[in-house]
């Protein structure tokens, strides 16, 4: 936990330095995108749940700093995608399962367990989902040491500081989150 937190603290400083003014205004599909610490994940997800979001999927990345779990949330009545990114240490898995808030996360987490070997804390049924239970060898989406990229390489010009979810602003932002192209269907 502490190891991971240090990394994400050190990252933004470089980020800050690399930040340039000629950023291309590209819509990435994310209306809001946060880094959160594994400790805060449950609270953040709970806040999203209260704001009426549904879980789209849980994606995962293997990178130099460890695993990055990306939780995608969206909303039915006021569409807008929120991404929650959690950095995860390669050895000590301390990311909690969110299946008790979103039962649909059960399978997504099992899939991450399949492909990356991430053990979610508190998951009741962490069995292989898509892979053969007799599968030998490392999880298939683990990259070679040489192929791994760092946060900086993958997300240039991105703030990777974990957000403070206790902050009023976080709550306000997710409640008001909406797709800029969104028009009312009526």
């Amino acid at each position: 936990m502490s190891d991971q937190a240090e990394k994400s603290v050190t990252a933004p400083e470089k980020e800050e330095a690399a930040k340039t003014e000629e950023k291309v205004p590209l819509y990435t599909g994310y209306d809001l995108d946060y880094f959160v610490t594994p400790k805060d994940l449950i609270d953040a997800v709970r806040k999203l749940d209260q704001a009426g979001f549904f879980l789209e999927d849980i994606s995962c990345l293997d990178m130099k700093e460890g695993f990055q779990l990306v939780y995608h949330f969206d909303r039915f009545d006021q569409p807008g995608r929120v991404g929650l990114r959690v950095m995860q240490d390669r050895e000590n898995h301390d990311v909690p399962s969110i299946h008790h808030i979103y039962p649909g996360a059960d399978w997504h987490e099992r899939e991450c367990f399949d492909f990356f070997g991430i053990r979610f804390k508190g998951h009741p049924n962490l069995l292989p989902l898509l892979l053969d239970p007799d599968h030998q060898g490392p999880p298939p989406l683990i990259k070679d040491e040489s192929a791994r990229k760092s946060l900086e390489e993958l997300y240039p010009d991105r703030v990777t500081t974990p957000v403070n979810i206790e902050d009023e602003q976080f709550t306000r932002e997710i409640t008001n989150c909406s797709n800029p192209k969104y028009r009312n269907p009526s």
Binding site: E56, S59, K149
Partner: peptide
């Protein structure tokens, strides 16, 4: 380098692709 999420409406629901490029 960067990542995007793109979703379309399939016959069964929301098809989404989260693409991360280096």
């Amino acid at each position: 380098a960067g990542d995007v999420y793109f979703a379309v409406e399939g016959a069964r629901g929301k098809i989404g692709m989260h693409l991360v490029s280096d």
